[in-house]
Design a protein around this nucleic acid. Structure first.
Lengths: 134, 134
DNA sequence: TCCTTTACTTGAATCATTCAAGTTTGCTGT
DNA sequence: ACAGCAAACTTGAATGATTCAAGTAAAGGA
């Protein structure tokens, strides 16, 4: 566990669901020049080790958080991409076990709620024809 | 609505969560040479029109299905990428509304159950050290 | 101190998807 | 029938996040 990796952990835990580029910037601010690939490499290692969690919303770059080990989900803004944590809605049973598992050995349930975050909602609210799509 | 687009609809509805390349192949078999970009373009149009649904599991290319309008989810195999439909586990309330919406205007809940499909499970089952990761 | 492993660097490659620009097609109104 | 127009399609190039490759540096164990 090196200085660079500690800086990555700090950047991820102090940031709010940052993407790799943002983490890279944060790390460089703290410990000087670190290559982007080192950040990719380290994040993969940290994820394998269970220290960070990956969030991969469709159509936007991967993000990372340090809240691991619990069963929580995410709200993702369709407009700005912001990610917000949500606790699991239903205890944990239905979230980890589908109605029928079709023979699958399920080990994780990934739940993403898509919508508009408050600021984007306010901006889009002025244009009724836009929000009609919802 | 052209012949090419009808062929796309047929390929998607007869296939099992195909990706764009597979749809393209299916379309070409039916109606002759169609460009890949036409397929991308048409699939986007069909999705905007609500005729097909997009499934974008992290780390694998986008897939399409024609089962739209209902609230169902997906099992995705970590090993081979196969996608299988699952009905919603809990009525529909918790699936469309998170415990706390944090002010978001939520319009969709995306649920993916990750695991191993039966064939991959059988193959991986022989190596206990692998399944320990689960 | 030597040796092996892990971390890191630079540079190039990959791959799905989109952008751009121009051409063809098919329909609408006159 | 025909001009005009929008949608569909084609080819070719670009984008961008991520990974691969190969070599260097640093760190820890014997």
């Amino acid at each position: 566990m090196t200085a660079a990796r500690l800086a990555i952990m700090r950047a991820v835990s102090e940031g709010d669901h940052l993407d790799v580029e943002a983490i890279h910037r944060g790390v460089c601010e703290r410990v000087g020049q670190v290559s982007l690939q080192a950040v990719y490499d380290s994040l993969n290692a940290l994820q394998r080790g269970g220290l960070v969690r990956r969030i991969e919303p469709a159509g936007s770059p991967t993000r990372y958080e340090t809240r691991v080990g619990d069963n929580h989900h995410h709200l993702v803004c369709r407009r700005c991409g912001k990610v917000t944590d949500v606790d699991c809605a239903v205890g944990h049973a239905p979230c980890l076990e589908p109605a029928s598992d079709a023979g699958y050995l399920v080990d994780e349930a990934d739940v993403i709620y898509w919508g508009l975050c408050p600021p984007c909602r306010a901006e889009a609210g002025g244009v009724p024809s836009d929000s009609a799509r919802v």
